[in-house]
Write a protein that binds this DNA or RNA. Sequence first.
DNA 1: TTGACGCATTCCTATATGGGAATATGATAA
DNA 2: TTATCATATTCCCATATAGGAATGCGTCAA
Lengths: 115, 115
Amino acid sequence: MARATTTSDAFNAIAEPQRRQILDLLKQGERPVHDLARELGIAQPSASKHLRVLREVRLVRVREVGKRRYYGLDARGLRPIHQWVGGFEEFWNETFDRLDTYVQHLKSDANEGAQ
Amino acid sequence: MARATTTSDAFNAIAEPQRRQILDLLKQGERPVHDLARELGIAQPSASKHLRVLREVRLVRVREVGKRRYYGLDARGLRPIHQWVGGFEEFWNETFDRLDTYVQHLKSDANEGAQ
DNA sequence: TTGACGCATTCCTATATGGGAATATGATAA
DNA sequence: TTATCATATTCCCATATAGGAATGCGTCAA
């Protein structure tokens, strides 16, 4: 099997750095495509493709005004990610302790072996 | 260009559901590979491959005991993700309001047009 | 109507994937 | 030493990229 689609969920969608940049930019408000493309220094078709992915996973919404399409943030899809990652909050502090404990285990094992 | 490597950063590494499951399981403590494989219902080589990815992005660490390799959580790499996603916290609540405001704009525009 | 603009889509290609199967590697037990 | 167990690695393949280039398409201005 191949890798999961970028549009399969928000996790995959935000794995791409440029798409994260787009979301960051949209914090300031809605923006048309060429604006985002220029800001990111990428070609317009690339921006459109990234935006399509973000649209399909519902992280952005579009408002059409004349020939422009204003993309805006819809951050609700990020909430599950925040929650999942947040489930490790107690661990990324504890990890150091664990590593220390582990190292101490090693040392005491070594000492016992030496005795 | 192709997609970014799964090992390019933690964002890409955790885009794969099974790797997230592995991390979830490791909250309970260290586990050998066959244990994880059985728990996830996948073949041992698959587990080893996923663990390799997680190792390369430093989300897990290994402790070798005899022929077993106990994989343990190193959640520190999840912190940047939590922070980045957390930067949208004010938006995933506000988004509803924005959408409402937007809809009202549309309505008022329509009314003005009708006048 | 025509041309220009803003954006989406399509075609193309190199690349990395995840899984299955087979095999290599290393450690332990007999 | 040899058989066995626990893991890692390799080879295979179908698949989905991301970007560049070209093009389609609707909208607006002249």
